[in-house]
Design a protein around this nucleic acid. Structure first.
Lengths: 193, 193
DNA sequence: TTGTCCATGTAAACAGTTACATGATTGA
DNA sequence: TCAATCATGTAACTGTTTACATGGACAA
C-alpha cells in the first residue's frame, strides 16, 4: 500500500523514471521505504491507469526508450491525503529479537549475534552521518530540487523534516549500539560464555 | 519464514494449541513476532508434515476437539540452527516516516502526527513496564515454565535474555517519545503552525 | 571489445491480511 | 440464556521476493 505513496512522494519533487525510483530506494529514500524494480514497474503502470502519474517517453541515444513519470494533480491530492492521515503502525516483527530470546539453548552464539547487531548499526550510523552532512551542506541533489520548488517559508520546513527524520534514524542506530554494548557487558558478567 | 521459528520457540517452552500461540502473539511474544490465526493453523499443519512438531488431540467437555502441538527433536534442532545463525535484517519500511518527510505540503497535520507518535510509544512504554515488572516478580507464567525447564546455570540466562529484549523495546519506546518531543519543539520554533 | 551501468519488463512462489464459516465451553 | 472466550479451519486477495529475460549507452 505504501509503495504507492513512496513513489508519489518521490515524484512530488520532480519527474523520474522507474530506474530513478529504484536508485533512490537504494540510497536516500531507501531509509524509509524500499522496493525491487520488479515491484516498481507494475506499480507505475497501475498508477498511470489510476491517473495518479503521467508517463511520457523519450529516446536516449539511438534506440533506448525511457519512460519518465510525473505526478498529476490527482496524485498530489492523494499524497496530501496520505501525509495528513493518522499514522498506521505495522505489526511487530523482529526476527533478530526472536533469535535472541530463544538463544538460551545456544548461548555460544550470543556474543557473535550481539556483535553483528553492533556492527550493523555502526555501519548505518556512518552512512547516516554522511547523509546528514550532505543535507546540511546542501549537496543532496534531490532534496535541493524539492527545496527549490518551495516558497521561502516552506524551504526550511522541507529541510527540517528531512533532518529530523534522518536524525531519528541516527538516534535509533545509536540506541541499538548502546543496547548491544549493555547486553555484551551483561553476558560477560553473567555467563561463562 | 520466521513465523515457523516463532512457533518453534514458543513450543520449545512447552506444548500448546494453535489458539495458545495466537493468544501469545497478542501478548508477550507479540512484541517480537505476530501472526493471525489464519496463518498459524496452516503453518502448524505444514510443520507437522515436516516433522518439526507433533500433534495430538484431546477432547474438552462433550465435543470440543483440541489439538496440542509439541516440538520434536528435529524441531529443536532447526530452532537451534536459527538462533545460532547470523541475523538477517529486513528492508527498511516505515510508512510513518514517509508521511513525515512528505508532509512539507500539509504542515497543518504535523503536530497531530507527532502527538500520535508520542502517544503510541507512551502506551507501549506503559505496557512494557508491566511486562518487565511481571518478569522481575516471576509472575510471567510462560517464562517461569521455560526457566523451570532449565538447569541452574541456564535459568538466569533465560530470564536475562528476556529482560534485555524487553528492556531494548522499552529503550526504543523512550527514544521515540524523546524524538517526537524534540520534533514538536522544533516545529514550535520554526513554523507558524 | 568488454565491463559497468542504464533501462524495462514478466512469472512463479512465498508471506501476510481480510473475510468467510462454524461451533463448543464457561461463567454470570 | 446470553456474552465472552475458546477453538479450528478455508478462500480470496494483496504485497513482496526471486528468478527469468532482454537489450542499449558509455567509457576505458
Amino acid at each position: 500500500m505504501s509503495l504507492k505513496f513512496a513513489i508519489l512522494g518521490y515524484l512530488s519533487t520532480g519527474p523520474g523514471t522507474g530506474w530513478d525510483i529504484s536508485r533512490q530506494f537504494d540510497t536516500g529514500l531507501g531509509w524509509f521505504w524500499t522496493a525491487r524494480h520488479s515491484q516498481i514497474y507494475p506499480e507505475l503502470k497501475r498508477m498511470t491507469q489510476d491517473g495518479l502519474v503521467e508517463r511520457d517517453s523519450e529516446t536516449v541515444g539511438e534506440a533506448l526508450e525511457r519512460f519518465s513519470y510525473s505526478i498529476t494533480d490527482r496524485g498530489r491530492a492523494l499524497l496530501a491525503e496520505f501525509t495528513a492521515s493518522a499514522p498506521v503502525y505495522p505489526p511487530n516483527r523482529d526476527a533478530e529479537r526472536l533469535q535472541f530470546i530463544f538463544a538460551d539453548d545456544t548461548p555460544e552464539a550470543l556474543r557473535a549475534h550481539l556483535e553483528a547487531h553492533r556492527e550493523r548499526h555502526t555501519r548505518r550510523r556512518t552512512q547516516l552521518l554522511e547523509i546528514l552532512d550532505a543535507l546540511r551542506a546542501n549537496t543532496h541533489e534531490r532534496i535541493n530540487l524539492r527545496v527549490a520548488n518551495r516558497r521561502a517559508e516552506g524551504k526550511s520546513l522541507t529541510l527540517g523534516l528531512r533532518e529530523l527524520a534522518y536524525q531519528g534514524e541516527l538516534q535509533r542506530a545509536d540506541l541499538e549500539i548502546e543496547w548491544a554494548d549493555g547486553a555484551l557487558d551483561w553476558l560477560s558478567d553473567n555467563t561463562s560464555y
